[in-house]
């Protein structure tokens, strides 16, 4: 799927007061067998948002208006920890989310997010807690994200600056596929191929046996 550029804007946002949201919560492994099609949004938080009887749980915030149409999630620490499944990002993107703000992220989730035009924003724990509280208190609160300026503006008017690597920012703003970018380094990769083959001549690559 081609990478989508991240566009600056103001988005409906929902607070999610759960720490360590893991990739099995975001999308249980059994759905990884299915293609990424129109059913994908059903898998987001599939088991978390349902009661034991399989009904939508009204206590889960994303099941309730106005948060059920949110495009930005403000979460707690270690969001997206667990497995490498990129489906944990697909399922958020396909459910209409554009960004998630949290104090920290699972490393692989963070990197996967960038490849899908989905912006993971690290803000300190106090800022995240403040945003979650502001969103919980104001129905229909929005969060403005300006990637160029690297700022988040809360529904309470608070402005927070975030860090992002220059490389990732460039790719997200332009919607660049980094495979194309890397393939432009053909000569350097050829040299690395030769260098690694020479450095470990005893390594018998897999097809050799």
């Amino acid at each position: 799927m081609p990478m989508r550029a991240f566009e600056t804007g103001s988005f409906a946002a929902a607070p999610l007061d759960i720490a360590n949201v893991d990739t099995d919560q975001l999308i249980p492994a059994r759905f990884l067998k299915r293609p990424r099609d129109a059913r994908y949004p059903e898998y987001l938080f599939h088991d978390v948002r349902r009661t034991a009887a399989g009904e939508q749980d009204p206590d889960f915030i994303l099941n309730r208006a106005p948060w059920d149409t949110a495009e930005v999630l403000v979460a707690d620490r270690n969001f997206g920890c667990g497995s490498s499944r990129e489906a944990a990002v697909y399922v958020l993107v396909d459910s209409g989310f554009r960004a998630v703000i949290a104090p920290s992220f699972g490393d692989i989730f963070y990197s996967n997010a960038m490849k899908n035009g989905f912006l993971p924003i690290r803000l300190d724990a106090a800022a995240c807690a403040g945003l979650r509280q502001a969103l919980a208190e104001r129905q229909g609160g929005e969060i403005a994200i300006d990637l160029k300026a690297q700022t988040v503006t809360g529904p309470d008017g608070s402005v927070h600056r975030f860090e992002i690597s220059a490389f990732h920012k460039h790719c997200l703003l332009e919607g660049l596929d980094d495979i194309g970018f890397t393939l432009a380094q053909q000569a350097k990769i050829d040299a690395a191929d030769a260098r690694r083959d020479a450095a470990t001549p005893w390594f018998k690559p897999a097809s050799a046996v």
């Binding site: 497995s83 490498s84 499944r85 990129e86 990002v89 692989i108 990197s111 996967n112 490849k115 899908n116 490389f167 980094d178 495979i179 890397t182 393939l183 990769i189 690395a192 191929d193």
Partner: peptide, 17 residues
Amino acid sequence: GIGTSEVEHVFATQTLV
């Protein structure tokens, strides 16, 4: 561990960012 976009990147380039 890497995500699926990165799997594709390694398939195509034998490298990773």
